[in-house]
Design a protein around this nucleic acid. Structure first.
Lengths: 346, 346
DNA sequence: GAAACCTGAGCGTGATATGAA
DNA sequence: GTTCATATCACGCTCAGGTTT
């Protein structure tokens, strides 16, 4: 009955312990554990066996300390944003094949972006991927002087070497939504905006531009909104009582649109009969059969891939001391997903 | 114009660089950086100044490698669970004052619990906090032999030293919901369950027990459900068409309940007029003015505090070689939050 | 004796240099 | 020349134990 493995009392097993057990040098064990070449098949098996027996695990920290490259991508994200969760899925998926690990640092109540980033830097991340960062541009610029930084979803003017932006063409998304509604025959189209949220300004602008281009400038109506259901609900209450009531509404995002749908439903405003509603994000919510929301889809997978790709490209090109990779603004096209909340006006 | 700080070419600054600049030993710099005693006020200032000038940051990994304690709590969580996000907020808040850092590892598509845990172990975490783990009990038991493990929300029978469970009294929550409905005058109360989700079995059992205790055994009706809006919607479609239709529904969680509400609304089933609906979790969703869901609240803050507390207690008591701290099952009482979706039956 | 500072060793790895089959 | 194995050092830091005022 092998109760506990024969592991050095208390301590966690190290290379040396495995080496002793297998009767080889620590260097050889290191080679085997890394899967590097330079060890015979028989010995390799013997070492792995010994490692298994005493429950050896490589110490990531010692490893990183020794090797000059950490192959770590630091990702800052917000705990309360499902959109970030989706991005993280994509980031994990993209980082692995590229040979990089992901270190997470959450922004939470009482744990601001400053703290989150400091943790990542202390952990020796080689590059930072910031999801919807709110930090001042100056701060990001300063960071970018130290290491490659990718800002996802937050647009930035500053063009600093090492600072890249990956985002959806928010204005284009708003345009697609307006075009769709106009094609259906709508003219009185309102927009519930996202305030200071990342992308809100572009969506607002895209809405305005598209309305003007269709000669519907006089119908432009922007209501203060936000990212939550409640924000949408509040704006919808205003709209439900408005005379004339718009025949279509473009909400800042899907959560906001959900709030709109709910209030309309309760107020006896039929969707899409009386009013058409369009969201933004194509979140899981929008796809649900009982919500079935027409929405502007962001290509989350593509955003994640690009974010990782740019960070990695920066790192590899830095290695080569080359700077030919263009720094900049990487914009992904959105695509309208037509579902059941839009129809021609009565 | 101080373009770049006088930092050693390419390399990131180390203790030695700061020491050289300040004209002291590395040991002293270490003391200053840690805020330990053993340095004069003047020197301390000089060292900090030098560190600032060259942009020095302590290397967390080297630090951990040297010190035998890592003071790291490894937390495994699911990306797609808002409930986990809320728990993480609490865990961060609780870990800091206790003097521990948090290392996150997400479970995502293509990144199972095994991988997530291995990362945490390689990072030298001293204890693991697993949010809603799905791994086989045997695996958790094995882990618990290596280090303190706290399972949150997932109940486990095995009583292994070092394995602790922190959870809500799910059965009690279901009981409170049933009691509330019965007190309102309901008798025909259905339950949409959570399948194999953590806590689902207990809630199901709590529902059954409570119904029986009220002499309503003949009304017991459990519909297969799940954790998502869609699961709730599917079950609600069944219920809306059922004859007799129950006068009240207890859903597995708030998301599930939201799906129920939506289907009822569209089918012309008034809530709470025709049917009362109760959720579980008291999530942000439930609190929204336009959802206004009666629900069973989990004390997330308390769960998080307890999870961290138990992990830390284990660690500190291990240090003292004492084992007096009871291993076990820590159960937090839920509390019913009465809102607008429950009322006496017609 | 205390306070301020330094020296030296070593944490667990990975890389290089070197040697033996 | 190739394959397999080892010895040795360095990574950046902390800590125990000195030495000096």
């Amino acid at each position: 009955m092998p109760a506990t493995p024969a592991v050095p009392a208390g301590r966690r097993p190290t290379l040396a312990d495995v080496a002793a057990r297998a009767g080889v040098s620590t260097a050889l064990v290191s080679i085997v554990m890394r899967g590097a070449k330079g060890a015979g098949a028989a010995t390799r098996e013997r070492v792995l066996e010994a490692a298994r027996e005493i429950g050896y695990r490589p110490d990531a920290r010692a490893r990183l300390l020794r090797s000059h490259r950490s192959h770590l991508l630091g990702v800052q994200f917000g705990l309360q944003h499902p959109f970030h969760s989706d991005l993280l899925e994509g980031i994990y998926a993209a980082a692995e094949p590229a040979g990089y690990q992901v270190a997470l640092s959450a922004v939470a109540a009482g744990r601001g972006e400053q703290r989150a980033v400091e943790t990542l830097l202390a952990d020796r991340c080689e590059a930072l991927i910031l999801l919807g960062p709110q930090a001042p541009a100056a701060r990001l610029t300063e960071l970018a002087r130290q290491l490659p930084v990718v800002s996802v979803a937050r647009r930035l003017r500053a063009s600093v070497p090492g600072l890249e932006v990956v985002r959806t063409a928010d204005d284009e998304g708003a345009r697609q939504a307006v075009d769709h509604l106009v094609a259906l025959g709508h003219r009185d189209i309102a927009h519930i905006d996202g305030g200071r949220a990342p992308g809100a300004a572009d969506r607002r602008r895209g809405y305005r531009t598209a309305m003007n281009r269709h000669g519907l400038g006089e119908y432009i109506r922007v209501l203060p909104g936000g990212l939550t259901e409640e924000d949408g609900a509040a704006a919808a209450r205003t709209l439900a009582a408005a005379r004339p009531r718009p025949t279509a509404v473009l909400a800042f995002n899907d959560r906001c649109a959900t709030g709109v749908l709910d209030v309309f439903l309760r107020s006896g405003v039929a969707v899409p009969g009386d009013v058409s509603v369009v969201g933004f994000d194509d979140s899981h919510l929008a796809r649900l059969a009982h919500i079935n929301l027409t929405t502007v889809g962001q290509d989350i997978t593509r955003l994640a891939e690009l974010a990782v790709g740019r960070a990695v490209a920066r790192l590899e090109s830095d290695d080569l001391e080359s700077d030919e990779t263009a720094v900049g603004d990487h914009v992904i096209a959105p695509h309208l997903v037509v579902r059941g909340t839009t129809a021609p006006p009565r």
